[in-house]
Design a protein around this nucleic acid. Sequence first.
RNA 1: CGGGGCGUAGCGCAGCCCGGUUAGCGCGUCUGCUUUGGGAGCAGAAGGUCGCCGGUUCAAAUCCGGCCGCCCCGACCA
Length: 496
Amino acid sequence: MADAITPRSVDYAQWYVDVVRAAKLADYSPVRGCMIIRPNGYALWENMRAVLDRMFKETGHENVYFPLFIPESFLAKEAEHVEGFAKECAVVTHSRLKLDENGRLIPDPDSKLEENLIVRPTSETIIWDTFSRWIQSWRDLPILINQWANVVRWEMRTRLFLRTMEFLWQEGHTAHATREEAIEEALRILDIYTTFAEEYMAMPVIQGVKTPSERFAGAVETYCIEALMQDGRALQAGTSHFLGQNFARAFDCKFQNQNNELEYVWATSWGVSTRLIGALVMTHSDDQGLVLPPRLAPTQVVIIPIFRNDAEKSAVLERAQAIERELKDAGFTVKLDARETYRPGWKFNEYEVQGVPVRVAIGPRDVAQGTVELARRDTRTKETVSGTGLAERVRALLDDIQQTLLARARAFRDEMTTRVDSYEEFKEVLEEKGGFILAHWDGTPETEARIKEETKATIRCIPLDRDAEALGTREEGCDMLTGKPSKQRVVFAKAY
RNA sequence: CGGGGCGUAGCGCAGCCCGGUUAGCGCGUCUGCUUUGGGAGCAGAAGGUCGCCGGUUCAAAUCCGGCCGCCCCGACCA
């Protein structure tokens, strides 16, 4: 048995790595903390990117590309920002190598750069340096841009997709004339992320705002979506920041408003990354491998022909190709795997591990009876159905799988969300059950820090309207630790 | 950066403590035959600077010294 997957009940972390590798999403690279994204993983990212890109463009954003390298001095211009990122930057100091007297490659001392370059950990600084030249008047605003790029953060500890030193993401950067407009933008993006997570990834999320200690370095407010993984740990799936005028101040970016006054520009930035692939794996997959929501699956339907001899082969393949055509015409992504180098049983397993939502098997029996065997990945059930009207049947099946995955994940999330009122209960639930814990907090960083230190749980977010209502967190109470008054419950969890 | 583990065939490992012909095993790969509706079977074959550098020795995967790298757990983080 190749590529055995460790069951989740035995070792969840190992299961995750096993699934990623068995499903051929990614490999380790020769460089510590980096990963090779394989065709299956990259196709998934391309699908995610296509959906998000469309949503960004529909809301008026345009794509751009800024350089990978940022002058070192830029990073120092925003005080909180430098503090947040300085510790994890890759720095370029030389422009060439040479052979030393021992024949080893070393950076050529003569090529030392006048000013070091950093490999972007995020692009606010270079973008606001540029905005300061693009923006003079209120007529230049708003600017709504996005870029699909790679960034590097020199992390101590990495995990495939969830935290790698280099990762792919999109980063949106916007400039506005008013505070209100910028906040509105940040929340609009948060809604896009929410829609994407729930309707495409089939992953329910809580929309919230971060506490000051969990905020993006340089932001005034960080909005986020938080998801719950199958092991009861939370995962920050996307963030949207209201940056206030912090970067405008740092890069002296002012505009003349309609009252003929000079004013700093208001900003947002927002991003989601290849981490979402990790989130997808940890939301739906099982001990048999990857489970993908149909709306993002690179292959929605795989067709597997079964035959023993040439006569059967030609009859079966003819039928299989007709079905492939029918399903492709209906708009599905379809793969007919007619390779004779692998046997049907092997293929069944292979596509199950890779999470293909629907499998159609066609053998001599089916040709004779005008049927096909339809199997769905999410429930691992199969049935033999008539071959007529197959496209509609597949459409209904894919829709049902998409809905089932979301409903299942939502039920799990709800089941794993617990209201607690005492610190004892909090610790007990955290240890024995995990998940999201809704508890009162007095709003002080001291209490937050103490809870984190004592339990490793952090405040994932303070729910915004939609989820505050759904979760019933907007009620007065007393902090579970200090007993001080609290205006609302917040979401605690151990996080990735 | 602290704690732990590991570098031997493409992958996963044994051998090392106690030095001794040609360094093994499983999976994978290749060839052939039989198979093909849930990860095939049999037979044969190919594949190795034992992480790197140095030392001890008649002899080093094995002992000694140094170096490098990776993984896991913590602190930090999308």
